[in-house]
Amino acid sequence: MLVTLDPRDERPLYLQIVDQVRRALLEGTLRAEDPLPSVRELAGELVVNPRTVSQAYRELESEGVIYVRRGQGTFVAPSIHPDRRERRALVRGVAERAVLDARRNGLDVDELVTMIWEVAAEEGEGSPSTSAAARGGAEGAA
């Protein structure tokens, strides 16, 4: 299944679909020129309003991620570079949610960033050397 929705996620459903398509591109489960399910298929599969799926597809189309071949369906754009724009858009979404959550809890962003490194280290995600590299990379990109 290409897309699954999380009922606890408070973002609009169409944005959840947009993000899941972006994620599928990053993971390589969707590649250039791959077909996407039709609006009807995805609406039936997820039991969502077809307008929600159309809205998600329109958004992805306006970003140049997918395109419509008349009479044939919707496809991933041929010149997609998921490593750049898509990755950035996905990270941005995660960051926005984290910052919003932090503000609501009366925390400032520096506290949040420090704690993200701490938590990641505890979960063994970033050994100090790779964290430093990633941190350098992130600063370089910013």
Binding site: R40, A43, V47, V48, N49
Partner: peptide
């Protein structure tokens, strides 16, 4: 799911009375 497909096939207005709003959460606008 049939209802969602039905809506994709033809423009239809739907008025649903329910006390199970949860199952209609992603269909309702």
């Amino acid at each position: 799911a049939l209802l969602a497909e039905h809506l994709a096939d033809a423009p239809t207005t739907v008025l649903i009375a329910t006390h199970h709003i949860q199952e209609l959460e992603s269909l309702a606008d």
